[in-house]
Computed example of a mutant assay.
Amino acid sequence: MKVHERIDGRLRDFIEAQPMFFVATAPSGPDGHVNVSPKGMGGTFVVLGDHRVAYLDYHGSGAETIAHLTENGRITLMFCAFQGPPNIVRLHGRGVAVPVTSSSYADLLALFPSPPDTHGVRSVIDVTVDRVSDSCGYAVPLMSYEGDRDLLIRSHSRRTEEDLADYRRVKNAHSIDGHPVFAEPVAPQAG
């Protein structure tokens, strides 16, 4: 394993070329569940600097990442090479979820050069990276990338902003451990 000072050119190129990555968070203390989520879809991840990255967080069946970030901010993102030379890159840091209802949401969204349809995004996860490392990845299997799925985008296209606000309030109110996800009820985004 090698620790790097920053997300430099070679590491940045590798990270940006990966069609998927994994996000890990956990609640504070000895109890509770560690969460690992796969993320993907072209245009939903961006490197914002040597020590900063962000990704679009769409509505989903759970909201563990937001709950954990609200509680303690700890987050790790992992990128694996499933094609080409083996490599694993981990970005450890502190993250914050910026919900669609936040006044700074639109400014963060504008930093994504070519996002897919953003209807259905519930927040931007903004990560300050304090540790960058890579390792061999020799045991990661070789797999072929066929393309992005469009099911999430199509599913959200059928929902209004009010439907999405209800989804957050009803289905994304608490983590599986009962931690609150949004500090206050989240209203639909104006616009």
Rank of each mutant, 00 (worst) to 15 (best):
residue 80 C to E: 13
residue 80 C to P: 02
residue 81 A to I: 08
residue 81 A to D: 07
residue 83 Q to W: 11
residue 84 G to W: 15
residue 91 L to R: 07
residue 91 L to H: 04
residue 92 H to R: 14
residue 92 H to G: 12
residue 92 H to C: 11
residue 92 H to Y: 15
residue 94 R to S: 09
residue 94 R to D: 03
residue 97 A to W: 11
residue 98 V to G: 02
residue 99 P to S: 05
residue 99 P to L: 05
residue 100 V to L: 09
residue 101 T to V: 07
residue 102 S to C: 01
residue 103 S to I: 05
residue 107 D to K: 11
residue 109 L to W: 13
residue 110 A to R: 15
residue 110 A to Y: 09
residue 112 F to C: 04
residue 113 P to W: 09
residue 113 P to E: 08
residue 117 D to G: 04
residue 118 T to C: 06
residue 122 R to E: 07
residue 122 R to H: 01
residue 122 R to Q: 13
residue 127 V to Q: 03
residue 129 V to W: 02
residue 129 V to K: 08
residue 130 D to W: 05
residue 131 R to K: 13
residue 131 R to M: 11
residue 133 S to A: 10
residue 137 G to I: 15
residue 137 G to F: 14
residue 137 G to M: 13
residue 139 A to K: 14
residue 141 P to Q: 15
residue 143 M to Q: 10
residue 143 M to P: 00
residue 144 S to W: 09
residue 144 S to H: 12
residue 145 Y to S: 06
residue 145 Y to H: 15
residue 148 D to K: 01
residue 152 L to R: 15
residue 153 I to Q: 07
residue 153 I to Y: 01
residue 155 S to V: 02
residue 156 H to S: 13
residue 157 S to W: 07
residue 157 S to M: 13
residue 158 R to T: 09
residue 158 R to H: 09
residue 158 R to Y: 07
residue 159 R to E: 14
residue 161 E to D: 11
residue 162 E to I: 06
residue 162 E to V: 13
residue 163 D to G: 01
residue 163 D to A: 04
residue 164 L to Q: 08
residue 164 L to E: 06
residue 165 A to W: 12
residue 166 D to S: 10
residue 166 D to G: 00
residue 169 R to G: 02
residue 169 R to S: 14
residue 169 R to E: 14
residue 170 V to P: 01
residue 171 K to Q: 04
residue 171 K to L: 07
residue 172 N to K: 12
residue 172 N to D: 13
residue 173 A to I: 02
residue 175 S to I: 05
residue 176 I to V: 10
residue 176 I to P: 00
residue 177 D to V: 03
residue 177 D to R: 03
residue 181 V to R: 03
residue 182 F to V: 00
residue 182 F to P: 00
residue 183 A to H: 10
